[in-house]
Simulated assay, not measured.
Amino acid sequence: MEIKFIVIDDEPPALQVIKTYAQQFPWLKLLHTFEDAVSASEYLRQVPADLIFLDINMPDINGLDLARGLTTHPMIIFTTAYRQYAFEGFELDAIDYLLKPIPFQRFEKAVQKAQAHSRQQLLPAGTESLLVHSSYQCVKIPLHDIVYIESMEDYIRIHRTGQAPVLTLMTLKKILEKLPSERFRRIHRSYIVAVDKVRTVVNRKVKLSSAAELPVSDSYIDFIRDWKQL
């Protein structure tokens, strides 16, 4: 599976490092490099890229601001010499965050995460199964097997009836967009539940068919009212 990428960094040596590292992976195809964010932004309006290596500290436009302003949604791997930007980078659903100088092993891990993410082939909402990439293989999960989904930072864990959970690279927000809203509801920043697997609600906790008990947070308290009306 080919991944087309661009690199945006105002430091030519940093551009060269990423170009050299990327040559070790035949499935990475370099489209262009840019030393300024303005030119890169204009390019992306015309040419779609699957992945962007994006420096955060640039003189014209901050890399975080550029990411927020994109009208398309390519994968992003932030690069910077400053560790304090990591949280903001992951808040933007970045695939990874590389601290300069970038070791090759760390670059390899980041692009493998990007490859795994690109292989996520979730079926459209309304279908009866979804496919996720886990442990270098595609796993087909019938929707009726899902009990709940748990956030694990930049991964999620899909808990199933009578089977081991499946860990896959994705956010709760992204997977919720792919699931039928009448069957799956978010109840907490860390949990999505299958509505038909909820057995009881007591003291703002739901008990599921698997016997797991999960909290309902203030932001999703409407779930309790809606569940009682089913």
Rank of each mutant, 00 (worst) to 15 (best):
L130C: 01
P74D: 02
A125E: 11
Y97N: 09
L51S: 08
E108D: 10
L131H: 12
Q120V: 01
M58T: 05
E128G: 12
A94G: 12
P74S: 11
H133Q: 13
P101W: 07
G89I: 04
I102K: 08
M58V: 11
N62C: 13
Y97K: 11
A114I: 00
H133D: 03
A67L: 08
R119M: 15
A114H: 07
E108F: 04
A67S: 14
M75F: 13
H133M: 11
Q105H: 14
A114R: 04
R83Y: 10
I95Q: 03
F87R: 10
D93E: 14
V132I: 12
E91L: 13
S118M: 10
I61R: 07
R83A: 14
L66A: 09
A110H: 01
Q84M: 02
P101F: 05
F90E: 07
G63N: 10
I95S: 02
L98Y: 04
F87S: 11
Y85S: 06
P74I: 02
D55V: 05
F90A: 04
A49W: 01
A110F: 02
S129C: 12
S135M: 10
H73Y: 11
K113F: 05
Y82W: 07
L99V: 15
P48I: 00
Y85P: 00
A86P: 04
L130K: 02
L99P: 02
K109Y: 12
Q121D: 14
E128Y: 10
I61A: 07
Q84L: 01
S129M: 09
I52Y: 05
R83S: 14
N57W: 01
Q120Y: 07
R119N: 14
T79K: 03
S134W: 05
P103V: 02
A110D: 02
E91G: 08
Q121A: 14
R106W: 02
P59T: 09
L54C: 10
T72I: 07
R106N: 11
S135E: 15
L98G: 05
I95E: 00
T72V: 12
T72Q: 14
L70D: 06
S118D: 00
Y82H: 13
Q84R: 08
S135R: 15
R83M: 11
K113N: 05
Y97P: 00
V47C: 12
L131P: 00
A67I: 00
T127G: 12
P101A: 12
E128C: 02
A67M: 11
D65L: 14
Q84P: 01
R119D: 07
S118R: 13
L98V: 05
L70W: 06
L131Y: 15
P103R: 14
S135K: 15
R119K: 15
A110N: 03
L130Q: 03
A81L: 06
L64P: 01
L98D: 01
P59C: 09
A86S: 07
T79E: 01
T80M: 06
T79H: 03
I102A: 07
P59V: 08
Q112E: 13
A49E: 00
F90D: 00
